[in-house]
Design a protein around this nucleic acid. Sequence first.
DNA 1: GAAGCGCTTCCGTATGTTGGAAGTTTTTAG
DNA 2: CTAAAAACTTCCAACATACGGAAGCGCTTC
Lengths: 269, 269
Amino acid sequence: MLKMELLPEASGALQRAILLLRKLGDAGPHGLRLTALAEAAGMPRPSVHRVVRTLVDERLVAYDVGRKTYTLGLDLFMLAARAGNAMGLRDICRPHLLRLTASLGETLFVLLRSDYDAVCIERSAGPLPIRALTDIGGRVPLGLGQGATSILAFLPPADQDEIIRHNIPRLTPIGLDEASLRAWLATIRRTGYAEGTTGVNPGMAGLAVPILGHDGNAVACLSIGSTTDRLTPERNPVLAGIMRQAAAEIAARLNPFDPALRRAGAAME
Amino acid sequence: MLKMELLPEASGALQRAILLLRKLGDAGPHGLRLTALAEAAGMPRPSVHRVVRTLVDERLVAYDVGRKTYTLGLDLFMLAARAGNAMGLRDICRPHLLRLTASLGETLFVLLRSDYDAVCIERSAGPLPIRALTDIGGRVPLGLGQGATSILAFLPPADQDEIIRHNIPRLTPIGLDEASLRAWLATIRRTGYAEGTTGVNPGMAGLAVPILGHDGNAVACLSIGSTTDRLTPERNPVLAGIMRQAAAEIAARLNPFDPALRRAGAAME
DNA sequence: GAAGCGCTTCCGTATGTTGGAAGTTTTTAG
DNA sequence: CTAAAAACTTCCAACATACGGAAGCGCTTC
């Protein structure tokens, strides 16, 4: 019995369960049957059965009796709804998003940095139909799109180099090169906001400002998804000013706990 | 080996990990420190440390080095974003939500049934500030609010009895009794939609229609969250008609896979 | 500078996990 | 309608892994 598996080798019940959850996430909304899931994960069927049954008991996975398929369960969804609220960022952003969407008539996104990517944790849909790079829960490489790039522009140079080195292989297939990315980053740092089109969705454009943490580095961003005819050279600076103001207010509420204030924070809990 | 443990006894790495995730979800947005987490879960600190470290490696949990706190991680959030799309319901609903929000000027929710509760899986915010019972990821007992009750009204009588028996203890503290709930259910079944106020948020009112599955039972609902002065006896029937039409279109796309069509579905994958 | 607290590592034990094989149910073919 | 095939589920003994008390380490506090 040779085992030639090279990649997805997960040892231990926990890691196997996580691998199964990931495979179920990659599957479509109708889920996977037991055999298909076992094959996708490279695990024996009985093992998959045992683990996935535990996950069903815990309601992290839903089982459709009729179809005999497993899908990600609603308990996972409820857990995750809370996960997107790191630092309370989502709670802080929501009222700003509602206000800005109403006053500007645009669709707004909040992207949170996660290593080499930005993850969309909140969205407020405006009246226009928008085709954005991502939606809630989606991930965008830092350097692609106005939002993710506005974050990248306000990171320490060393981190930028590391991220660019890591992400360039992911960006070149879409037609981006390092030189123009670095030029764009310089522009963003100078103006304080990112504007333009991605080239991915024709007719679509965006405008984003970073949300800075206590150390002056970007931890997230506020991003508008709109159309090219609405984001004009005349209007953009105005929008950027309004967005920057909101981002500043959000940032101010982002780190209420200084190291010195730790005890006060613990007491409030 | 007698087990006399009564409460949160989780045996095995997987169940323990899930318990820890739940405890982290219950904690605030700033997370929990190791000792606090261990105490919350009723587990020895070294065990918690080992499990939570695995979860951090898998990015399901985020570790704040400075604060030494653990919070739910973004990978979990990304997983969960997909989990809310059971049956593709969210993808199907989104365009309808955007259209209805724009044309009606109201805030709309999609609630999906989950055993004795309804879970909010999607929202489209209108221009007015609304205080709803729940937001995305939130849970409402079947029988509370227009949305969850519109689902309950279109379930088989046996299920209704079981659910009512289970939920009454949760509803009486808010001032609801079984008799008036059953009367309301009869009204909903007759008119086809649920309207009214919850009494929980003063000035707020709602209107909801069920989304029926292939067997004629409700699997979800489309719900408006609004104010009492906007949901009048004159306007409500009109709104209900529009909503019912949308719900019917959604339902029609909900079960493209008959048992007989299973093979065709598999082929599409 | 010393005491206290909480995080992390260690390691022998035993408990939970593993997966081949057999059993059962559902689906497909004849 | 019957038979063959496929998929799902259960079983169990060998085994690996998770377990947690105790000791070590690092940070903060007094």
